[in-house]
């Protein structure tokens, strides 16, 4: 397969950090401005996908290795569940915003709204990791469909 040209590579290197930072901004300010965990997570994933498309699979796996992405996927979902269970244990009902009830923050400030920013972050981690995994797996099968079963993902996983 033909390599991507120098222009695409250089520009993507310059831009990918800013895309990731913008995604973090969308996630962290989800309770104040438009955005939130889902949107931010997709933006974070698109940063990795851009790196993968421009530089190839190996470079993207250097930033976020496969065996790190899978635990992140599970950890995000689990953290969200734990935040819900926290309400069940401390507040009496599932998804009670216990932190907001105990320490109500100043409106319009960043550390505010209790578990909502934390939930946003958990969802963002989950969405980012799972979308990155899907596109990675899709691209791997594309290689495998051509000739033989090339599966560097499984070998990396079994290391």
């Amino acid at each position: 397969m033909k390599e991507t040209s120098t222009i695409v590579k250089t520009i993507s290197r310059c831009v990918v950090g800013f895309i990731f930072l913008y995604g973090l901004y969308i996630v962290c300010y989800g309770h104040l401005t438009p955005g939130g965990g889902f949107t931010g997570g997709v933006i974070l994933a698109s940063a990795f996908v851009l790196e993968m498309l421009a530089w190839g699979k190996e470079e993207a796996l250097k930033s976020l290795p496969f065996r790190l992405a899978k635990p992140f996927d599970s950890a995000g979902a689990l953290a969200f569940l734990v935040l819900g269970l926290l309400g069940l244990l401390l507040g009496g009902d599932f998804f009670v915003n216990v932190i907001q009830k105990a320490y109500p923050g100043k409106p319009f400030s960043l550390f505010n709204a209790g578990i909502i920013p934390l939930c946003n972050i958990a969802i963002a981690i989950k969405v980012c990791a799972s979308l990155f995994l899907v596109i990675l797996v899709l691209s791997v099968l594309r290689v495998a469909a051509g000739g033989g079963t090339e599966d560097d993902l499984t070998t990396q996983e079994e290391e």
């Binding site: 939130g36 889902f38 949107t39 997709v42 969405v127 799972s130 979308l131 899907v134 899709l138």
Partner: peptide, 12 residues
């Protein structure tokens, strides 16, 4: 917003 993200997963 929920439906959009689900649709992406289902599409995958």
């Amino acid at each position: 917003l929920t439906a959009i993200v689900i649709s992406l997963g289902v599409l995958a």
